[in-house]
Design a protein around this nucleic acid. Structure first.
Lengths: 316, 316
DNA sequence: CCCACCATTGAGTAATTGCCCATGAGCAAA
DNA sequence: TTTGCTCATGGGCAATTACTCAATGGTGGG
């Protein structure tokens, strides 16, 4: 018989032990006695087999790809949490899939027993998300809106996310009685100084978890469509490098908030700390790709719920 | 929104939990908190993923001892291909190990780009094998059954291997709409002359590769247990020197097909040519040793997947 | 030949997992 | 509505596995 090197022989043993453990399903005790070694040595061989990647495990299920992508995205951008849902190739609404996933995530937070502060932004995606929420009683938690609920024309805003949410979730909720955009930085100061607004802003800063939509810019983007910005203003913003917005805060392709007149007029609360809390962005679709990439690059968010298509783009 | 069934959603969760556990290496506690469920539920999901065969484990290492045995067996009996898996000393099911190995071999064939015809027999071993197959799309290939799918009592046969296989593998598949045993040689002629049967038989004769179980005889053997033969018939067969069967074709210890009334009533397709195609027998265990030795001796098969124990017996 | 060094071992122990059981929610039939 | 059934749930506990550490033994340099 050919003399084999010591390490090769050891790997053979590891392979045998790993086979007996994972494929044949024996316990390490049984393996030890059948191979004539101690239980601890059997354990070492099994872990060696794993460490040397002799044992290949694979998941035979459609969501396997999503989980792989989620892991890769989380590592690449240093995010706390990533959920990837399967892409629906057949077009469909821009919120199919992620709304359900985001609702499930919100539910997980609301089911905690310790009281939490949950902050929400606004937008179509978030509206679709809260529409997926089941009825829950959670009187210990507080829900606070980051953005104003008054539209440019003075009416209540289109996507009154926080009220829809309160319909389903019985929790104390705190809307932001402000417009989304005010006319000047000074006006914002004045409004934010009001006692009622002040306390809501303070609460939002203490949010344990935040769910926000990620908006793309462009004349078809939400800021224009919903009348917050004129087409001309939008073009100028984009010329200055703006690619996306969260709660109205406009950022460039690096994810840095732009230092421009529009951002000075945003009345929304600042996005809660990504150091001390979880801020989950929700969005999918080709049009939002650039905005999403910027948001995760610049750490405007530290959690993401999106689809396979966007995940793959983020990994290129 | 697409309504998904409850069981589908549960399988999705099971897949996720299984992935986190086996691929990502998280503990069940971590999985539980990240999925918002109790540890016990997480444990249940993980075992569900295993029970539903979503998790596939394979050993990616040539164990030297098995390789040497395989080489020796291949040379001694002039086989084209031999796979030996480690023996599991602690009894265990009769298919542990070889089912995984055979599934991997089938997968290799199905991944070919050129269209192939793959023929399968039936039996417990083959059923366990196809249960290990992952989902594959291979619309270019054809899968044909060598044996009838009608049991003695007229019901569909116990191990509808080809249908289970078609569940996992999306390929055209051709069952054999016949009983396994008919009442006379004349009836067999008549049935085989039917157009539908004829074309399936022709296809099986063109198989590029064939996977068959190797059955032992005896009152505990499959032919008796499954009610194809009476105890008396079996005793008589064994008195005449029969030791094993493949697809119902009964052979003696030399591997020669017996010239007796039973073989005249076997409605299965002939075993495809060992000259021009690969015919792989699958089986292990003490009880099958004689049958396996006979099959390789008489060249009923030209490929073998078995375990160390049988391999050593074959070399004595 | 001796000693320092390092890998390996087995004992002990902490962590993790698997399983049983009581409980209660959900649901169908009466 | 009540009753009875099924099944998922989480607590508790035993089995199993992973890790730490001191002891052992083998090896190479001095």
């Amino acid at each position: 018989m050919v003399k084999r090197s010591e390490t090769t022989a050891r790997l053979d043993d590891a392979a045998r032990a790993g086979w007996l453990y994972y494929v044949a399903g024996r316990t390490q005790d049984e393996i030890a006695s059948s191979m004539g070694i101690s239980r601890q040595s059997a354990q070492r061989l099994v872990s060696l087999a794993v460490a040397e990647r002799l044992i290949k495990v694979r998941l035979d299920h459609p969501i396997a790809a999503c989980l792989e992508l989620a892991n890769a995205v989380r590592n690449k951008y240093g995010l706390r949490q990533v959920d990837i849902v399967p892409s629906d190739p057949g077009a469909g609404a821009a919120t199919v899939g992620i709304a359900e996933a985001a609702a499930a995530e919100i539910e997980r937070w609301l089911k905690k027993t310790d009281p939490i502060v949950l902050a929400v932004g606004t937008g179509r995606t978030l509206k679709a998300t809260v529409d997926q929420l089941p009825a829950i009683e959670c009187i210990n938690h507080r829900i606070v809106s980051l953005t104003g609920n008054i539209a440019p024309d003075g009416s209540a805003a289109y996507y009154n996310v926080i009220f829809s949410m309160a319909d389903a979730v019985k929790a104390r909720h705190f809307p932001m009685p402000l417009p989304v955009l005010v006319t000047s930085a000074e006006e914002r100061e004045t409004l934010h100084a009001q006692q009622l607004v002040r306390s809501t802003l303070d609460m939002s800063a203490q949010a344990d978890v935040t769910f926000v939509g990620i908006g793309e810019l462009g004349i078809d983007g939400p800021l224009c469509v919903d009348g917050f910005l004129e087409k001309g203003e939008m073009m100028e913003l984009m010329d200055n490098g703006a690619v996306g917005e969260i709660c109205g805060w406009i950022f460039d392709s690096e994810g840095k908030l732009l230092d421009n007149p529009i951002n000075e007029r945003v009345a929304s609360a600042p996005i809660p700390s990504r150091e001390t809390s979880v801020v989950i962005g929700i969005g999918k679709g080709k049009r939002k790709m650039k905005a999403i990439k910027a948001a995760v690059t610049g750490h405007q968010i530290n959690g993401l719920i999106t689809d396979e298509e966007v995940a793959e783009y983020l990994l290129t």
